[in-house]
Amino acid sequence: MIDYWWLTALLAMVLLIDALMSIRPPMFIVKCLDGVGFPRDWWWTLIVVKLAAAAGLAVGLAYPGVASAANAGVIVYFLCAAYAHYRARFMTQEFWINCLGMLGFSIVVLVLSNV
């Protein structure tokens, strides 16, 4: 049986980098959040959520149930983001690459980590 722990670690690292980038968001993040109409006063909450998810995934490397729960939370986060894009009719490159790409990656990590 192959152990895919590194996928969980990679997802945690990607979320950590995303959270750190969101502190001073580059234009593609600004365009995405403005495009879905997410209030700028609430942008900080996304940083907290991503940091919590990354921490949960990291802790989950030692405690697999924690990783599964954090991974499921990441999937819910990106499902909500996809719905926000759909509802705002903001179906640009940010939606297809960033949002759905991360949703797909999160699902793959959950499936392969629980084989």
Rank of each mutant, 00 (worst) to 15 (best):
M1T: 10
I2H: 11
W5I: 14
W6Y: 12
L10M: 14
A12W: 03
A12L: 04
M13C: 09
M13E: 10
V14G: 01
V14D: 04
S22N: 04
I23D: 00
I23P: 00
I23V: 09
P25V: 00
M27D: 14
F28H: 15
F28G: 01
I29K: 03
K31P: 01
C32V: 04
L33V: 09
G35L: 01
G35K: 00
G37A: 06
F38P: 02
R40S: 12
D41N: 10
W42R: 15
W42C: 13
T45S: 09
I47T: 11
V48L: 12
V49Q: 13
K50C: 04
A52R: 09
A52I: 13
A55T: 13
A55H: 09
G56N: 08
L57Q: 07
A58K: 05
A58V: 15
V59S: 13
G60N: 07
L61F: 12
Y63V: 14
P64Y: 10
G65S: 10
A67K: 04
A67S: 14
A69M: 10
A70T: 11
N71F: 05
I75C: 06
L79N: 02
C80D: 13
A81K: 00
A82I: 02
A82M: 05
A84Q: 03
H85L: 03
H85N: 07
A88D: 01
R89L: 02
Q93Y: 08
E94D: 11
F95C: 00
N98W: 12
N98K: 04
L100M: 13
L100W: 02
M102C: 12
L103M: 01
G104I: 11
G104W: 10
S106Y: 08
I107E: 00
V108E: 02
V109G: 02
V109D: 01
L110V: 05
L110W: 03
V111S: 03
S113M: 13
S113Y: 13
